[in-house]
C-alpha cells in the first residue's frame, strides 16, 4: 500500500491548507481522506478499542482543523496530525482509566487478534501474549515503528520524544519480546 506521503505531496498538502484557511472548508475533506487510515490506526494502537479509536481520531482531525492557523509549515501536515492524534488518544486513554474499562470491547479486540494469529501461526499467539507484558510506551514505540515502517524520527516526532529514546525503546521491546517468547516456548516444551 502506498503511504499518504506518496499519494499527496507536500505542495498539495499546503495548497489544501491554504484553501481551508481561505474559508473553503470542504478542502479539508481531502486531507481527512488522505490521512484517515493512519490517524485511525495510531489511535487504535493506543486505545485498543475501536469505538474509542474512532472518536479519538475524529477528535484529532477536528482539533487539527481548529488549530490549522497555528501549524507552522516546517514539518509535514501528516507529522503534525499524527502527533495530535497520538496526544488525543493518550489523553482519552487517561480519561478512560478513570472509568471502568469496557470489557466487552477489549474481549473483541483480543479474541480477534488471537484468532487471527492462530490462523497464521501458533507462535504468533505467544508473541501477542508477550506483547501484553511490555511497558506501555515501549509497546507503542515498537507498534508505531512497524506501522507501515515509520522511521524512528517519525515515531519520535509523533510521540514527542527524542529519536534516541525511541531507538532504545524499540530495541528494548524487541529484546523483551524475544526473551518472553523463549521463556514461553521453553515452558511449553516442559508441559509437553
Amino acid at each position: 500500500m502506498l503511504r499518504p506521503s506518496a499519494v499527496i505531496t507536500k505542495e498539495e498538502e499546503f495548497a489544501l491548507i491554504d484553501r481551508v484557511l481561505a474559508g473553503q472548508t470542504e478542502a479539508y475533506a481531502r486531507l481527512v481522506d488522505s490521512y484517515k487510515s493512519f490517524a485511525f490506526t495510531i489511535a487504535l494502537k493506543v486505545l485498543e478499542n475501536r469505538p474509542e479509536a474512532e472518536e479519538a481520531a475524529q477528535d484529532a482531525f477536528v482539533r487539527a482543523f481548529h488549530y490549522l492557523k497555528k501549524f507552522n509549515r516546517e514539518a509535514r501536515f501528516s507529522t503534525w496530525l499524527y502527533r495530535i492524534t497520538f496526544n488525543t488518544a493518550i489523553s482519552a486513554k487517561r480519561k478512560n482509566k478513570m472509568r471502568m474499562d469496557s470489557i466487552e470491547n477489549k474481549i473483541i479486540v483480543h479474541e480477534g487478534a488471537a484468532e487471527d494469529a492462530l490462523e497464521r501461526n501458533d507462535k504468533h499467539v505467544y508473541i501477542a501474549q508477550a506483547m501484553e507484558k511490555l511497558n506501555e510506551m515501549d509497546k507503542l514505540s515498537i507498534q508505531l515503528y512497524y506501522l507501515q515502517e515509520f522511521s524512528l524520527e517519525e515515531v519520535a516526532e509523533m510521540m514527542g520524544q527524542p529519536s534516541n529514546t525511541i531507538k532504545v525503546r524499540v530495541h528494548r521491546a524487541r529484546l523483551r519480546l524475544a526473551e518472553e517468547l523463549t521463556k514461553i516456548l521453553k515452558s511449553e516444551v516442559v508441559n509437553l
Binding site: 479539508y28 475533506a29 481527512v32 481522506d33 484517515k36 475524529q58 477528535d59 482531525f61 477536528v62
Partner: peptide, 10 residues
C-alpha cells in the same frame, strides 16, 4: 468517517 469529521468541524 470523513462525514463525521466534517460534521464535527461545522
Amino acid at each position: 468517517f470523513i462525514d463525521r469529521v466534517m460534521y464535527g468541524i461545522s
